[in-house]
Simulated scan of single mutants.
Amino acid sequence: MDQLEEPSINTKNANGINSSFNQQVERLHQVTVYGRWFFVTCLWLTIAPFALWNLRSEIVILQQYFTWVSLRYGLFYHPLSSLGLAVCIGTTVSTIVWQSRSILLGFPQREKQRLEKQVLKIRQQGPTHPLWKWICH
């Protein structure tokens, strides 16, 4: 009867590999979070100052006599500034919502699978991959 039994898997070793893989997936998620916030910061440091500089005369008027109509017309007559501020605000809000969802509800299954596939690709490519030292060190 002993000959018919399947060889047992070393569960301690399998758990160690699985734990290592899960840590790498978590590190990739952290790198993704930092990357998104870095992108948002770059937008605020590059686009927002130009947009606000272009709106400086309207901002002075708004500081003295704020009305929603004056804000609306200030943004309406400066479409590039309005677009720049909308991009900055939109990416910031979307990043906050994305990160809050991940914190409060956990990873959606699709995102978890995407992260796992990416970790496998990084592992397969090895040290030549740009994210190797941050994910698989």
Rank of each mutant, 00 (worst) to 15 (best):
T67L: 05
A48V: 15
S94Q: 08
G126M: 00
S81A: 10
L43Y: 03
K121Q: 14
F50R: 11
F39M: 02
K117T: 13
L62G: 07
T46M: 01
I103E: 03
E5C: 04
K133P: 00
A51L: 11
V119Y: 06
T41S: 15
N18D: 10
K133M: 04
H29V: 10
T67F: 06
Q109M: 11
A51W: 01
Y34S: 13
K117R: 04
W53G: 15
F50P: 01
D2Y: 10
W98E: 15
Q30S: 05
L75P: 02
L115A: 08
C136P: 04
Q118A: 02
R123Q: 02
R72V: 07
W134H: 14
F107S: 08
T32F: 05
N13W: 00
I61V: 13
L55E: 01
V87K: 08
L62A: 12
A14I: 00
V25C: 12
L52A: 09
Q109W: 13
D2V: 08
V97C: 03
N13A: 05
V40D: 09
T92P: 13
Q118P: 00
Q118H: 05
N22R: 05
T67H: 08
C42S: 09
Q113A: 13
S82N: 13
K121W: 02
H78G: 07
F38T: 02
H29C: 15
K117D: 15
L28D: 06
V69A: 12
R114K: 05
Q30L: 03
R101F: 06
I61N: 13
